[in-house]
Each structure stands twice: as C-alpha cells, then as structure tokens.
Design a protein around this nucleic acid. Structure first.
Lengths: 201, 201
DNA sequence: GAAAAAATTCAGCACCATGTAGACTCTCTG
DNA sequence: CAGAGAGTCTACATGGTGCTGAATTTTTTC
C-alpha cells in the first residue's frame, strides 16, 4: 500500500503554492476577475490539475481564508491572555492588533467579507473569527463595569456589535490609503472608550 | 418620426415589471442563483428582450437598488427635518426608521451590501445612502455636544462609523428572524446613547 | 530494486449562462 | 399608408466551469 509516513508530500507543497497564487491574484485582479486557469498557472500546473486539490474556485478561496484566519486567531489568542490590563489599554491594544492584521492580510480579509454571503464556508470562517474577538472583548467590557448578561444591552451584545463595527470600518478603510487605517483606529478607539465610559441610563 | 408624447410607454411598464421580477427572485433564490432568463420570464418576455432594457444582469440589480434607495432617502429626509427634537429622541427615531426600512426592503438592501464590491454602480448608490444618513446624524451628535470638526474623533467621523455599525448590524440581523431586528435596535440604541452620554477624555 | 499502490497530472469534453446580431412585428405620427 | 422608432425574438458565438478517464510519476512495501 502507498500509505505515507512523512507528512511532507509533494501535493502539500503544491496546495500551498496554489493558495499563494490565489492570494497574489486576489490582490491584483480581485476574486471575480481571476480565473481558475490563472490560479493553476500561477502555481505551475494545468487547470485540470487544480481540481485534484480543490473542488471549485470557491473551495480555493475558502481554504485561503481558513489559512489566514488560523494566523489571526492564534495571534489574537496570545494577546488576549493578559486579563490584568485595565480595559482602556486592552481596547487600545486590541485595536492596534486588528489594524495590523488588516494591513498585513487586507486582501484576503476583504475577499472574505465580500464572498461571505456567496460562499458558506468562507462565511462561517469569518463569523467564527469575529465571534472569537467578540467573546474576548466581552470580558473586557465586563471588567469595565458593563452588565454581564445576555440581554441586548448587556456586555455580550454590545461587544459583538462593536466588533462588527470595527470589522466594517477597517474593511472600508482598507480600500483607501494607509492613513485611512490610522484615522479609523482613532475613531474606533473613541467609540469603544465612550461606550465603557458612559453611565447606564 | 415615432416620437411618443405620453410618458407612459409600454417599455416603462415592462422595465418596472423586470425590476419587480428581479426583486421577487432576489428574495427567493439570491442574486447568484437567479439567472437572466428567470428575470425575463418573470416579466413575461424572452431573455433576449431583457437586453433591450438593461445592458447586463448587474445593470438590473443596479437599477433595482437605485429604485429602492430613492424610497429610503426620501423617507429619511422627511424624518430628519425636525431639528428641534433632543438628540436621544432623534436617535431613537432614526433607529426605528432604519429598522422599518430593513424590514420592508430587506432583500434588496442585503443584495446591495453583498454586491457593492462587485458592482460599482450598486456600491456608489449604497455609499451615498449611508453617507446621507451619516450627514444627518452628524448634526444630531453636534447638537448633543460632540466636537464639530473633521478630526477622526469629532462628530463627523463618529457619526459615519456609527452609521456603518448600524448598517452592518441590521444586515446581519436581517438574515435571522424578526426578533433579531428588534434586539438589534435595542443594542444599537445603547451604543449610540452611550457615545453621546460619555464625556470626552 | 521491482512490483504494487497511491498520488498526481493533463487534455478534452459537455454544460450552462452570458451577451450579441439580425430579422421581424407593432404602434405611433405625419 | 408609409416610415421610423420601440419592442421582441430566435440563433449564434464566447468563455469559464467542472468532470472524466487514461497516462505518468512518486512513494511504499516486500
């Protein structure tokens, strides 16, 4: 039998090469305009061969998004460990971290947002990622004194909404120049801080 | 010459019928899955004839979105006229209004969000609409005492960011049941009110 | 190091939706 | 009623996708 013991098969490299090529094309031409043949050619194989690795063009994107999301949540998990930092600093740090993520993985993240509706797998990846951030920020809001509950005005719902605000803002800023990301972080910080500073009414 | 005098040409009705059919299909099958032939058939003409009215499938969506946006901004303009209401009530009213819009035009608005990136015309319509709301809400924030300027932490940027938060939240809630929209409004109100309640730091 | 099994590759086909071309009908106008 | 523009349709060309099945290479096993 041809069972492998070592994990580094030729195909694994090819698979990564395909994802690399897809990422490259994503930045240059966008998802719609890039064709399956382009991706395959970018990795040095024929179009037909690509279908050995991925079932469809959407599968390629789903895998690429998944690969990127792993990076992101790993990175975020490390940062969220220190439960001692006071909320304002925790917010500051989380925003800086998120901004960097958008700077480094902007094209993939943008594609993820845009294809989330049309591509269930991508949608799920993205949702989970944002939800993970929301869970972490919920803790911060609770430490800041917001009501710890599941009502629409409690920490959980507020954190989730603010995280989606953050997502949306960076998504838009990413399409502009690098300064836009900078300004966006300032605006977002102001909103987050105001939310934890205000008294309940 | 065959110049018509009455404004109600046969084609105008057909054009509306096509948009109606497109809207109907949008709710049932989504943009990707719906085909040009489906739209044409829905309006009782052949696929080829549709191209007399619209240059492409994307054009149909752009026209449909434009038609809906006209409704929405007209409605919003009327509501935003009373500059006398105190900020908290103005926010309350704006959110209720927006929620109703998502209830009534949810499918078109969702499609607009999803296709905004792939369809420049749709993207522009949507941007303008949200921007119009942001401009109105900026006034409210100023009346609430936020700094009236163009810096990233002034009323303008805050209003814009909060409007995109609102957009994103309703977009997501719209995919769930009707209660979700209700809860979303409560959460959004809490955020908006907290932002105007907090002191600058 | 040969045979067997698995992994990988590719060319070619079938399909489906899009968009275009050209001919045909309808209706209004002068 | 003739002519022009509006509206309609069938037929075709295009392009990208996904599949299939056979050839080829790599890896494992004995």
């Amino acid at each position: 039998m041809g069972r492998r013991s070592d994990a580094l098969r030729k195909g694994d490299l090819r698979e990564q090469a395909l994802l690399d090529a897809a990422e490259e094309l994503l930045t240059r031409t966008g998802f719609e305009r890039m064709t399956v043949e382009d991706i395959a050619k970018g990795a040095g194989i024929s179009r037909g061969s690509l279908y050995f690795y991925f079932g469809s063009k959407h599968d390629v994107l789903a895998a690429l998004v998944a690969r990127t999301m792993v990076d992101i949540v790993q990175d975020a998990a490390r940062a969220a460990e220190d439960t001692a930092t006071p909320p304002p600093q925790a917010i500051e740090r989380a925003l800086d971290h998120t901004e960097r993520m958008w700077r480094e993985h902007g094209t993939v993240m943008r594609a993820a947002v845009e294809q989330a509706a049309a591509n269930p797998a991508v949608g799920r990846s993205w949702d989970e990622t944002v939800e993970a951030f929301a869970a972490a920020m919920r803790e911060v809001l609770v430490r800041a004194g917001l009501p710890d509950g599941d009502a629409p005005t409690d920490a959980g719902a507020l954190a989730r909404t603010l995280c989606w605000m953050t997502e949306r803002s960076y998504y838009r800023a990413c399409a502009e120049d690098g300064d836009a990301l900078d300004r966006t972080t300032q605006t977002l910080r102001e909103v987050w801080l105001r939310v934890i500073a205000a008294q309940a009414h």
